[in-house]
Computed example of a mutant assay.
Amino acid sequence: MVKKARAETLLLTIFSQIWPALIASLNSFSDGMQYGWSAPALQVLQSHNNSMHIEKDDEFWLESSFLLAGLLGLPISTYLTEAIGRRNTIHVGSVVALAAWCIIGFTNKLKYLYLGRILAGITGSMCYVATIMYLTEIARPDIRGFLTSLDHLQSTLGTLFIYSVVPFTPFYVHAVAGAVLSLIQVIIFPFFTAVTILFSTKR
């Protein structure tokens, strides 16, 4: 009876950490989408049906701006994780990601597309650093490796998603999907946090 109770407690503890980990790593799915964005998206933007004029130099800089902004995001994320905490840093990153997807999906001006890519690069670094730290801190030692691997899994799935969706749907569809994921994280994530910390302090 005691063993059964302990097993049930263990399962409850693990379950209570998996769901917050999935929500916390949604930003990695979004970041994976942004990472793979340029390959399919630039082909669509260069099509005759698109009103935005894309030059060869723009192809280079739309990808490079994302990566360079990622470098800029590293010191920002380092500061924010210590100043406002891991959870709040993830929140800030989710809001920025939401803004980036809205800009990318609905702008018809190239300068705003650059802005969306820069914001995406910054939030990618912010969320990657903060999410790994958060998952490491709240996970039980026996499932810590599994929970932290969700970050990479979500990123890979995000890249596969962008390759699968952009060539076959209207351009705004993938951006709406990314924005919805970011919005879900912004709304739901706070409700998991207290429960997760409660169980992690009792492990």
Rank of each mutant, 00 (worst) to 15 (best):
V2M: 10
A5Q: 11
A5K: 12
A5N: 14
R6Q: 11
A7I: 11
A7V: 08
E8K: 15
L12F: 07
L12V: 07
T13D: 11
T13K: 14
I14M: 14
W19C: 13
P20Q: 13
I23F: 09
A24M: 04
S25E: 11
L26C: 05
N27F: 00
S28L: 12
S28C: 08
S30C: 10
D31N: 07
M33Q: 03
Q34M: 15
G36R: 06
W37H: 07
A39Q: 07
A41Q: 02
Q43K: 13
Q43M: 10
V44T: 09
Q46G: 13
S47E: 06
N50K: 08
M52E: 09
I54W: 01
K56N: 07
D57W: 05
D57E: 10
D58S: 12
F60K: 08
F60N: 03
E63W: 03
E63G: 15
F66L: 15
F66M: 08
L72T: 15
L72V: 15
L74R: 14
I76C: 05
S77W: 00
T78N: 14
L80Y: 06
L80F: 10
T81H: 10
E82K: 15
E82V: 10
G85R: 05
R86L: 05
R87H: 05
N88V: 06
N88A: 07
T89S: 09
T89R: 04
T89F: 03
H91M: 14
V92L: 15
S94Q: 10
S94M: 12
V95P: 04
V95F: 07
V96W: 02
A97V: 02
L98C: 11
L98R: 05
A100M: 05
C102A: 11
I104L: 12
G105Y: 02
G105A: 12
N108R: 14
N108M: 06
K109I: 10
K109L: 09
L110D: 04
K111Y: 05
L113R: 05
L113N: 07
L115V: 05
R117I: 03
R117N: 05
I118Y: 03
L119R: 04
G121A: 09
I122M: 10
I122D: 04
T123G: 02
S125C: 04
M126K: 02
Y134A: 09
L135G: 02
T136E: 04
E137W: 01
I138P: 01
R140E: 06
P141W: 08
P141K: 14
R144K: 13
G145C: 07
L147D: 02
T148M: 06
S149N: 03
L150F: 04
T156V: 12
L157V: 10
L157I: 07
T159A: 11
F161M: 09
F161L: 13
Y163F: 09
V165Y: 00
V166Y: 00
P167R: 13
T169V: 11
T169L: 13
T169Q: 14
P170V: 06
H174R: 08
A175V: 06
V176K: 06
A177K: 00
G178C: 04
A179W: 00
L181P: 02
S182Q: 13
S182M: 13
I184Y: 04
Q185M: 11
Q185A: 09
V186W: 01
F189M: 14
P190F: 00
F191P: 01
T193L: 06
V195D: 06
V195P: 01
T196L: 10
I197R: 13
F199S: 07
F199T: 06
T201F: 02
K202R: 15
